[in-house]
Amino acid sequence: MFVAEYVRPKNVEEAYQALIKDKKNLIIAGGAWMKLTKKSASKLISLEGLDLNKIVATEEMIEIGSMVTLREIETNENILNTCSGILSLACHNIMGINIRNIATIGGSVMARLAFSDIYPALLVLDASLVFYKSGEVSFADFLSHPNHDPDLLLGIRISRKAEAGYFRKVAITALDFAIVNLALSKTADSWRIAVGATPFIASLAIEAANYLDQYKELNDEIIQTAVNMALDEIKVSKNQRGSKEYRIELIKTYLKRGIRSVSEHVG
């Protein structure tokens, strides 16, 4: 890749100033996918050394620094113990360990990769993004309303309210991108359902979740109705990894299995 200069700002302000100075200046996070998307940069701005690689947990939430690697998320005790560990599981299923050692959650989020396995998990964990300038933005809004003003992602907050969760990725081999991925979570009173790689970027099935919220006890009929509602909300199409029909079948099956699994866990 052609890069004129590689810089290591000493603080976030310095990094921000470098970023807004020139459109050809780019932030480099882990660099795992940079080759696939960028051919050149005037300045590559490293975020290393800005103390963005911490995972801080409280009772209600976990804040993950944007430079935390996917491998660190995969193995973090607090994240493993949150919502059936779905964010760790989502990371665990991404490519090989060598990539997970360099790929960061910040890079994964900012790249807006439609096949990303972590997006559905973040959506059902009610995640929010903490930006240097724009402050806290809900992850769902970030996905549905892209804002292209240059800014620095400092961290990601996930809620610990959910009692149980479910994550599933379907791929051709263990090293492939998803044909479809989906995640579910349930707090004491509300469900969240998210489906990604459809091949569109992940989104929440809000109506379906609200429908499930009405019932204390679920039966096959309720689950089926919720699944059908989710399929109405989520845009599905074909790409080289799978046809629309196949994706619909996968979503049907795994939403059904996911809802059952989560309701069993919460008793």
Partner: peptide, 22 residues
Amino acid sequence: NTSCGVCTVLLNGKPVPSCSVL
């Protein structure tokens, strides 16, 4: 593009794909 593992080295003790590390 990081998809085969052949170029792996250990960086600070951790396996990484050297084809994609600057």
